[in-house]
């Protein structure tokens, strides 16, 4: 098949940046990576990109196609060619470009290291046999263990774009891989450290990382689990944690989210006064209900019921984080369900 594509080239030696157009003949089964190889072999040997396994496991070939982070070895070209589309290929975002499609992953790895990324069992001497843990006990970190450190999530992270110091989705998913491990002994220290500035509460919940991760790691879910575990352990010094706690409290007691109380409860009274102007302006635009005495929703029982269900199932902390349909189907509903 005849493949057309455009590639954002960057030559570090001249500093020149240009969008170049390529047309090559490729076999029907070709993935983007195969096409890049053909370009490098037949058109321009200076094209720079990383590759190794060509089977979606080494994490070398992260880049962007039409502005979305992908693995080049995972993108089949045939459907794209059939649509008559000419994709634009560029380097991943949120990381400095070294050359063409090659980014400098040093900042990425610095953040991984920030997580203390190794199992802390509390001892160095290796016992004679393995830890005894059932599959069920190990399953909570299954998804996080799939991470291949490709950087696709970091490339797309909105929070990282505005705060380059943000730990980011890959590192935090790695963090949960240890917090959720039944063999780990330093959960609380880890949670304390992940609650630092630029940590879990700085995620804007845009869900781009879940959406773009080529391995189904769902880093945003991992961050949510870290948040829930932190609150369970009483680590709630961050505004984000206070905010989350108030949400739950408010929903449980009234069935509503009383947004007017959100700021004083999470940021304290002084800060709330500072925000009054902002609140009034929101109110003028009909964005907040006026601060009248709290009213309780008619069907507050439903909200309370849900709250109790989660507690009765021992789902405080990470176990309570369920996202998406697949995860929801795993929650055990009482069989005599009353429709809740």
């Amino acid at each position: 098949m005849d493949v057309a594509l455009k590639i954002w080239r960057f030559d570090p030696e001249t500093g020149e940046r240009a969008l170049k157009h390529y047309n090559v003949e490729a076999p029907e089964w070709a993935c983007l990576l195969d096409v890049l190889d053909i370009v490098k072999d037949q058109v321009d040997g200076t094209l720079g990109f990383r590759k190794s396994c060509r089977m979606m496991i080494c994490g070398s070939c992260g880049m962007r196609m039409d502005g979305r982070a992908i693995l080049a070895c995972k993108e089949r070209m045939k459907p794209i060619v059939e649509r008559g589309h000419v994709p634009v290929i560029s380097a991943m975002g949120n990381m400095p470009v070294l050359k063409d499609l090659v980014v400098d992953m040093t900042p990425f790895w610095t953040k991984i290291r920030r997580m203390k990324p190794w199992l802390d069992t509390g001892y160095e001497e290796i016992p004679e046999r393995e830890f005894r843990h059932t599959q069920e006990e190990m399953n909570p970190i299954h998804k996080e263990s799939l991470c291949i450190m490709c950087g696709c999530c970091v490339s797309e992270c909105n929070s990282m774009e505005s705060d380059p110091e943000f730990f980011g989705p890959a590192a935090l998913a790695k963090g949960f891989r240890f917090v959720g491990d039944p063999r780990e002994r330093a959960q609380v220290e880890r949670l304390e450290s992940y609650n630092d500035e630029h940590g879990i509460w700085d995620c804007t919940r845009c869900y781009f990382c879940n959406e773009r991760c080529p391995k189904g790691v769902d880093p945003r879910d991992a961050i949510a689990k870290l948040g829930a575990e932190s609150i369970k352990e009483g680590i709630d010094r961050d505004l984000g944690a206070k905010h989350a706690k108030w949400f739950v409290h408010s929903a449980k007691t009234t069935g509503w989210l009383r947004e007017t109380e959100l700021v004083p409860k999470t940021q304290g009274v002084v800060s709330a006064i500072k925000q009054t102007k902002f609140a009034i302006s929101l109110a003028k635009h009909g964005k907040v209900p006026p601060p009248v005495p709290p009213h309780v929703a008619d069907r507050v029982q439903e909200a309370r019921g849900l709250h109790e269900l989660v507690h009765s199932q021992g789902r405080a902390g990470a176990a309570g984080i369920v996202q998406g349909e697949k995860a929801l189907s795993r929650i055990e509903h009482p069989s005599d369900g009353d429709g809740a």
């Binding site: 199992l119 290796i126 016992p127 046999r129 393995e130 005894r132 843990h133 059932t134 190990m138 299954h142």
Partner: peptide, 18 residues
């Protein structure tokens, strides 16, 4: 066993062994 104690997430038997 050493790999397991370093953190390898091996699949498990019913009784929790590798």
């Amino acid at each position: 066993y050493q790999l397991e104690h370093w953190g390898a997430v091996f699949s498990r038997t019913e009784d929790g062994r590798i």
